[in-house]
């Protein structure tokens, strides 16, 4: 007995070994000898599960990923084919004639580059000011006690709940007769609400920021206060650097929501100025400018529609590919967890 204890355990020499010259299989046998029936059953079950589950999981994930990626593949496949290929029964995925013509035509119809310019200008600008204003408001709600805080936060929740459609008409009238000015069709009617924390889905963003700042340790600020920092300086110098990843995630959300929005922008813009609006009205635009009101079968029209989709999502898709890591990993630290 003592002899066994004093023998030093030799290190495993290969992957197959666990030490003392035993293979994994032998070691398991010895362990199994000391187990009762229930334990053995449990071991068997978990081993079986460990083998079957990854296979099962692979199929589930593969299938679901397919459902998600499928439209993208379809989009790409359609956008680069000639319209005639749509009616060709032999063409399923790979077009018979590869062509860039459809893309070029769609770009012309959508007036792509100038539209893209306006959209980016609106989009990125609005997102930036929105994130800033929502962060400030969220911080106020998270860290300061003041009278009526519950009631005011109720307004934030109400902002999440009220559909935009309910308030779109009064908002239109507000911007149409904004004092002596008519702000309809100017970027201001997107910028003003965003800058004051009432833009698209601002309620949700204030909520996220509040949850996030609540989660940060209080000591951070107390230290800054003791050193003589005012609350605003503390916010800028201490809190913002700590909330970087959260800021990035919310900013990405904001960009995506502004990019995809067409309801709000169609209320305030009578001309098609953003990519989403262009896309919404693409079929009308196509028949007016490209087909000269001639009859093109709906099946063939798909080619241009899909090309339009591809053009519209390409910019954010590229952005997503680059920032994907922050988007999917950063969310875990973004304060969505209360």
């Amino acid at each position: 007995m003592e002899k066994v204890l004093t023998t030093p355990v030799s290190a495993p020499k290969s992957d197959e070994e666990v030490g003392n010259g035993m293979t994994k299989r032998e070691a398991r046998k010895i362990r199994m000898r000391n187990m009762n029936k229930q334990e053995i059953a449990y071991m068997r079950r978990s081993r079986l599960f460990g083998i079957v589950w990854p296979i099962f999981r692979f199929f589930i994930l593969f299938g679901l990923c397919f459902v998600i990626v499928y439209p993208l593949i379809y989009m790409i496949s359609c956008a680069f084919r000639a319209p005639e290929d749509m009616s060709d029964p032999t063409v399923m995925w790979i077009p018979r004639t590869l062509t860039l013509e459809v893309i070029q035509e769609t770009m012309e119809v959508m007036n792509f580059w100038s539209t893209l310019g306006t959209t980016v200008f609106l989009n990125v600008g609005c997102s930036l000011v929105q994130v800033a204003s929502c962060a400030v408001a969220g911080y106020g709600f998270a860290r300061f006690k003041f009278k009526g805080r519950g009631l005011l936060f109720g307004i934030v929740v109400l902002m999440i709940l009220v559909p935009t459609q309910v308030i779109s008409i009064p908002q239109y009238m507000l911007f149409r007769y904004f004092g002596p000015f008519n702000l309809i069709n100017t970027p201001l009617c997107m910028y003003l609400p965003a800058a004051m924390g009432v833009g698209i889905r601002s309620g949700l963003m204030i909520f996220i920021f509040r949850q996030f700042f609540k989660g940060l340790p209080k000591e951070l600020e107390d230290a800054a206060y003791l050193d003589g920092c005012g609350p605003f300086k503390t916010f800028i110098k201490v809190m913002i650097p700590n909330a970087k990843s959260s800021f990035l995630t919310v900013f990405l959300f904001s960009v995506v929501w502004y990019w995809n929005d067409y309801y709000v922008s169609s209320t305030f813009f009578t001309k098609n100025q953003t990519v989403a609006l262009m896309l919404k009205n693409l079929s009308t635009l196509l028949s007016q400018t490209l087909f000269n009101n001639a009859d093109v079968s709906p099946r063939e029209q798909i080619v241009w529609m899909e090309a339009g989709c591809l053009l519209a999502i390409a910019p954010i898709l590229i952005m997503y590919v680059f920032l994907q890591k922050h988007f999917t990993e950063g969310i875990e630290r973004s304060g969505l967890v209360g």
């Binding site: 204003s133 400030v136 106020g140 003003l192 004051m196 009432v198």
Partner: peptide, 13 residues
């Protein structure tokens, strides 16, 4: 200060 932080949002809202 709390009111100060939410003032801008409140006017906007």
């Amino acid at each position: 200060y709390g009111y100060g932080f939410i003032a801008l949002w409140f006017v906007g809202a």
